[in-house]
Design a binder for these strands. Structure first.
Lengths: 249, 249
DNA sequence: ACCGAACCGTACCGTACGGTACGCATCTTG
DNA sequence: CAAGATGCGTACCGTACGGTACGGTTCGGT
């Protein structure tokens, strides 16, 4: 575990990595991306980074500390993509959402992200889930906060409406990513192509607007004969719950 | 669990595991669920199942073969959840979709499923991804085929409409699962009880119908950029979201 | 009764990893 | 320049794992 020089001097208590440490962690990241968990041994890191194992243990204390440092290092690298100017038109808002969706897909499908998620997931069995919590906080929740601000701006402008922002974001996330992330984590290589990502980003944002878009403002160019009649009757009552669940496990 | 299935006597062409082998694999599964990848060593399996390491190697040839056998065994256990009677009313169709969503959430959040996915993901780094492919084929794609049939039946009945069935299913999957699966894989323990799964199932199916539901008018051309923006207006599902129970925490 | 196959328990081997210790070169600091 | 700190390279240790071998036991076939 790395230690700050003084525990109050900098609010950024993390990512206080020496350039040399950064270089070592970069090499470790390369090993991890290439060979996965098994390839990330102290001896290999030391040889790849031309440093000593003793130095590694002095810096990071433990192998878990080393892994955590790798994750923290990578997380600190992609800090704060852009605050993004507040959108004044719905067009700009949609464009920002599409851009967010595309960024999300690109990041999630990146080699480094996949390797780190695989590492954390593989290590997360049991109950500690230390690395998993780290990845979740630094990666997922960070991007969630960013998107949450974007959604809130759109809602205050009246472009969309929702009752629960977190739920709205989860819906947006599901529309964008679907099962792609798990597929990629499992090693599937579905039709790689950047164009597919932009198409998927647009489609998911359109669907999100169809669900959460505010009324009166057509989110998309009005194509004729797209009008659905009232679907409100579908969800009038569903109270009568027929229990038809087959428990199997 | 399944029977002896001598080769040729039954149509069970795959996963022909002896009962004894099944018991051993069951013990291995327990070890995997409890302790993860690290706990699944040949010595531990042998001791837990009261068998010999040599027998393990004779049966499964290799450690990878053993892991693959564990996955195949579990996959064969949850075979054919239900043929599913064809729905004749939209009510029944929606109910079947909700049931599917609930089952999907329950399965994905189960300990065994999480352990197997973690195992395959942790092993999937690199390029082979043998276990990942196995999990994908036996788990994900199997459930996809089942849901695909369901969607197709609903489309032929005119309850929903889509151009690409696979795309429609992916949307449904994303609406149901969102990022829950990856969160669980990373060790996050979302504070939702089983009842929330039914709520989530209903909500996601409602959203799916809002996107793909057939409403008696002209069918959607491209299924994208044609969202029923006006429906978001007169829907009353925002009120539905208010639960009777106060939320903990 | 005999035999061979399957199998259990244990011991064994080679390897690889986490972690530590030592020697030496380099750099900082007074 | 002296002294200390930092870090590299290598060797080393204990452990644990994958995989193999061997003796002893059970059980079905003939």
């Amino acid at each position: 575990m790395q230690y700050t020089a003084q525990p109050g001097t900098d609010r950024e208590d993390d990512a206080a990595f020496t350039p040399r440490q950064g270089a070592v962690l970069e090499k470790a990241l390369g090993l991890l991306v290439e060979g996965g968990d098994r390839a990330l041994t102290t001896a290999r890191i030391a040889r790849a980074a031309s440093c000593s194992k003793e130095t590694l243990y002095k810096w990071f204390g433990d192998r878990d500390g080393l892994l955590a440092a790798v994750i923290a290092y990578q997380a600190g690298k992609v800090r704060a993509p852009a605050p993004g100017e507040v959108p004044d038109t719905i067009k700009a808002f949609q464009s920002q959402l599409v851009s967010f969706a595309h960024d999300l897909l690109s990041v999630l499908s990146g080699d480094v992200s996949l390797a780190l998620n695989r590492l954390a997931i593989g290590q997360a069995s049991g109950e500690d889930a230390k690395l998993g919590r780290l990845v979740l906080d630094r990666g997922r929740n960070a991007i969630g906060r960013r998107a949450g601000q974007l959604l809130e701006a759109g809602r205050q402008r009246g472009f969309i409406q929702y009752a629960d922002r977190d739920e709205a974001f989860r819906t947006l996330y599901g529309l964008i990513v679907s099962d792609l992330h798990v597929r990629l984590l499992l090693g599937d290589r579905p039709n790689r192509g950047k164009d597919d990502y932009t198409a998927q980003a647009r489609k998911s944002v359109d669907q999100f607007f169809a669900l959460y878009g505010a009324v009166g403002r057509a989110p998309v160019k009005n194509s004729t004969a797209c009008g659905p009649a009232t679907t409100a009757k579908n969800r009038s009552d569903r109270r009568q719950k027929g229990k038809r669940h087959k428990e199997r496990q």
